[in-house]
Design a protein around this nucleic acid. Structure first.
Lengths: 347, 347
DNA sequence: TTGAAAGCGCTAACAC
DNA sequence: GTGTTAGCGCTTTCAA
């Protein structure tokens, strides 16, 4: 394959100095028209490409942004990436994406790989609320970093998140208005602040309707089958809930499967309300009622906060925290509470 | 923030040479226990991290693999990434992901950014069949590269793909067995070999049943609304199809929306068969009959082919092309053809 | 406007 | 087992 041409090869072929060649490539300093043309020709002839590893080493900005998400197969995070990518493209940055599989250890390795490549900035939807702050504590030198979705309010970081508490409040309020009194709340676990806030929102809504203590919170872990099993068990009880508020789109998925498996009509026998919205939810039945997160806003604010830190501004910037409202979308998976007529077959 | 410590700082603090420090970090050569401990202490005290930009420059492998996909929000590609990521993790590689938004120009920029960072290898699901070969032609020095999903058989590249022709054949055969004679085939465009092959598969199945020329191929572009509009128009005709074979999951989505909008029962009034499978399809109604692609296989073979090239093997390797079978999954969106009783309201 | 030369942080000969 | 040193390809003073 032969060795890749270097800027020295270009300079030699164009009979100019490497400094001049470098300057036509980067446009840092003016170059005479004659030299410029010779250099351009040499570059074309040789098929020269800048080696960014080397430029980075010499200290310039890389125009590379890293982005880490917990799970790339989750449409929610995929959309976040998609949005950020568009903005990066617009502003002349390249985006390097890594996925941590919801594992703080994997996240650490992946983020370190990014940092070791001298990215200019980093956007992370972290695996846990404190995984990224901890990296910094452990001595990893993070470039300007913004946390999105999770880790809201982490000390020392700009953060962008959805107002989960209010979103959940609106969700449960909707359910209560429909007459539901026994509402199961299905989540993965209570470890994420994000989720804890959603549960608080539920509590507040219940409390304001004189239903304090009536929520039944079920944590089924990350695994879909376990999640489904957990909610199924609840549905088998004589006093089974008349509505399920699923705290993530995976939970909604599990809830629907469980209801279907038990031959429960949605929303006739059981109402299901999700969190997170995406295209398929309005094409496939049941059209899921859901609390939509402000994806666009999360993306735009994350990018704005990051760019703000990257601009060579004099004054040291204060930490900025953004919280964006969710929107309740009522579709067809939620309906009036009805007496529990149907018996559920034993498993 | 202070400057990041270098290996020289480490060496100085440990009172050893940089070579020794480097050797404890990389384990290339044995190091005495005493020195090793001093170096380790110094690293911990200083919070030293290897600067991979610099290592890369010096010529070592980077253990970095690049991966490019056309659309990260498409679950099919997201799954591919997810699979590759797991293998990369297993084998001690880091994965850098870029998404091209189905645009060859964006793809070129993104891939160049990857290459400029000295990745050791590259896996691409290309935006078009010839976009990556063209990059090579244009003089970009690609590391060992394997093409997956698209670009099968591109000269000079290892490729891995699904046997789309056979998959489509099986799909249409299934539809014919159900009595369908008017089958609409919905795709984005005929430009991708992938899609063209699916259409050929349809033709072959039709031909073998004495139905040659009966296929109606509809290309609706990438945009969901256009796609939906295109198939809707077809459904408005008096001789509307009794089945739709949607060539991608987006097309299936559009077809379902169109049928729903026209109040057509699936599969009573119209059967819908998709391509690509994913979890939600077996939870949300209609459970979509579909041609499932061999995702696992695509992932494993891509990785195997790449690793094969990266292992410092003597003999020059021959180009290898892998084609994997699809699997027809019959669920509930396909049913027997019935006379077209229902009139569709004018738009 | 241009050129010469000094490193950026690291690894790999090559000595000892 | 350890140290010295020459670069990797690039940008950027500094001088001309």
């Amino acid at each position: 394959m032969g060795k890749a041409p270097t800027i020295r090869d270009v300079a030699a072929r164009a009979s100019v100095s490497v400094a001049t060649a470098s300057n036509v490539v980067n446009g840092r300093r003016p170059v005479g028209e004659a030299s410029r043309q010779k250099v351009l020709d040499a570059i074309a002839a040789l098929g020269y490409r800048v080696d960014r590893s080397a430029s980075a080493l010499r200290g310039r900005a890389t125009r590379l942004i890293g982005m880490a998400v917990p799970d790339i197969t989750n449409v929610f995070f995929a959309s976040l990436i998609h949005g950020v990518e568009a903005l990066a493209e617009r502003d002349g940055y390249d985006l390097l994406i890594v996925s941590s599989n919801e594992d703080a250890g994997v996240e650490r390795r992946r983020v370190e790989a990014l940092v070791a490549r001298r990215i200019d900035g980093l956007i992370v939807a972290p695996a846990t609320d404190d995984s990224v702050p901890r990296l910094a504590t452990e001595g990893l030198r993070l470039p300007p970093t913004v946390l999105v979705d999770r880790g809201a309010g982490a000390p020392g970081f700009d953060t962008v998140s959805a107002d989960c508490e209010a979103g959940a409040y609106a969700a449960v309020e909707h359910l209560i208005e429909l007459g539901h009194r026994d509402i199961a709340i299905l989540g993965h676990s209570g470890h994420l602040q994000n989720i804890a806030l959603r549960v608080s929102g539920c509590r507040r809504a219940l409390g304001e309707s004189g239903l304090e203590g009536r929520e039944r919170v079920i944590y089924g872990g990350r695994n879909l089958d376990n999640l489904r099993g957990a909610i199924e068990m609840e549905l088998h009880r004589a006093d089974r809930p008349t509505a399920i508020f699923a705290l993530t789109n995976i939970c909604a998925f599990a809830a629907i499967k469980a209801a279907r498996g038990l031959n429960l009509d949605i929303p006739g026998d059981i109402s299901i309300l999700g969190f997170d919205d995406f295209a398929w939810m309005s094409a496939l039945r049941p059209y899921l009622s859901t609390v939509a997160q402000p994806k666009e806003g999360l993306v735009e604010e994350s990018w704005r906060l990051l760019m703000r830190r990257l601009s060579p501004n004099g004054a040291p910037l204060e930490i900025e925290r953004v919280e964006l409202p969710c929107a309740l979308k009522v579709r067809e998976s939620t309906g009036p509470a009805r007496p529990r007529l149907k018996a559920v077959a034993e498993a």
